[in-house]
Simulated assay, not measured.
Amino acid sequence: MDPRSEVLLRQAELFDGQVLLAGLPADDLLGALPQARGWNWHAGDQALLAARFPGRSQFDTQMPAGDYCAAVLFLPKSRELADYLLQALAARLAGKPLYLVGEKRGGIERAAKQLAVFGKPRKLDSARHCQLWCATVEQAPQQPDLQALAQRYPLQLSDGTLEIVTLPGVFAHGRLDRGSALLLEHLQDLPSGHLLDFGCGAGVLGAALKRRYPSSQVTLLDVDAFALASSRLTLAHNGLEAEVIGGSGIESAPEALSAIISNPPFHQGVHTDYQASENLLVQAGRHLVKGGELRLVANSFLKYPPLIERHLGPCRTLAEADGFRIYSARR
């Protein structure tokens, strides 16, 4: 059981009824709270919850419909995303309790101050290195417009300008990160065919690929619902068409790909987690056609080449700058 869930269950009497659990982990919490419902934006967690508790959790960027007696927000890493989620929950909870739970190292004490907009925050419990806070929503705000919270920035490329659209909580919200900037400079001479942007975020690489290789089929894949929504907005704002899919890892990707291009993720909440990235290196060959290429950017200190060569083929370093390297290997 996730320690945040354990803290909630220490006060289980507070959550008896149709409570919405927003951002809940993929553990036994829904089993312990049989009337509760889940709202999730992590495709991996949602897949596990849907298998164990069919119909009780929804994968979306919008709060699920329902008449809830209370809601619990599991604190996300992004303050901007927490602001949006708290607003969305409070808008439907006039006169009802809104709870916030999170790890101390994740900034729960700071985040609890965000509850003060809706009512007086009260700390209810502290255990398992986590805290549980509550505020009764004294005056419900207006339902927030997610698209109005988007940030846009122009991206100057050799074939023209792309407008990138990012939503709260998406990696590198409102800016171009250094790794993607380097990879954008090395997208030439990719094999023709079906291209995959793995861990697409706001769709920077996927949009650039579709612009550069208009005759190629392009798919964008990410684990996060807000990233998927951002990618769709980026594509739409630039008049581009590509497939956007949610999935927890490379296992969710199509097969018979001619190339996989990635600035792979390595954070899960407040923790560093290289599992998705390393799994990409191990499994990429199963999704590539013969002669298909894996091209990715990674921090220079990561020992990826031996893993790539063990599971795919000879690994070349195409470029190195600002603490990042571009690796390429063909099946």
Rank of each mutant, 00 (worst) to 15 (best):
G291N: 04
S300A: 15
Y68R: 09
A298Y: 07
I260A: 09
H194K: 15
L296F: 09
A319R: 09
R330Y: 01
A227E: 10
D322N: 15
A242Y: 03
I308Q: 05
Q217E: 15
P254V: 13
S180H: 05
Y99D: 01
G55T: 13
N279I: 04
S158Y: 05
P264V: 11
L81H: 12
G179L: 12
L81W: 11
A256T: 08
S300C: 05
A82G: 09
P121E: 02
F266D: 06
Y153W: 14
L209M: 11
L183R: 14
T219H: 05
L235C: 10
E243T: 14
K210N: 04
A148Q: 11
G249V: 10
I261D: 01
P121N: 06
A71C: 06
S262F: 06
A225R: 00
Q35H: 14
E293W: 06
L296E: 09
A43D: 13
P154K: 05
L257W: 10
K96F: 08
C69R: 09
F15V: 05
E309G: 01
A181Y: 03
G44D: 14
C200Q: 02
Q11R: 15
N238P: 02
F301G: 02
V117G: 01
G247K: 00
S126R: 06
G106R: 12
L29C: 04
H42V: 08
C134E: 14
M63G: 00
T136S: 12
E109C: 01
L14H: 12
E185W: 09
V72R: 02
Q188R: 13
D83S: 12
Q147W: 09
A229G: 05
A225E: 06
L98K: 06
A229W: 04
A65E: 12
R52V: 07
E255H: 14
V204R: 01
V297N: 00
T317W: 00
D222T: 04
D125T: 02
Y84Q: 00
G313Y: 11
P314C: 08
S57H: 04
S277E: 11
S57K: 04
R286V: 01
M1D: 03
G160D: 00
A225L: 05
A111I: 02
A276C: 05
A65D: 12
G193Y: 02
A71P: 03
R331Y: 07
R122Q: 15
L233T: 13
A181M: 07
P214G: 04
F171G: 01
F226N: 12
Y327D: 03
A229Y: 01
L98C: 08
G38H: 09
A202S: 15
L49K: 03
L33Q: 07
L49D: 08
R56E: 11
A321D: 13
G206V: 02
R10D: 13
E185N: 12
S126M: 00
L9A: 03
G106A: 15
H194P: 05
R316A: 13
A82Q: 10
G206S: 04
Q268A: 14
P3L: 06
L86C: 07
A135Y: 04
S328A: 15
G174C: 07
Y153I: 10
H267E: 12
F171M: 02
P191K: 14
A225D: 02
A259V: 10
L29K: 00
D145N: 12
L49P: 03
A319S: 11
Y84M: 09
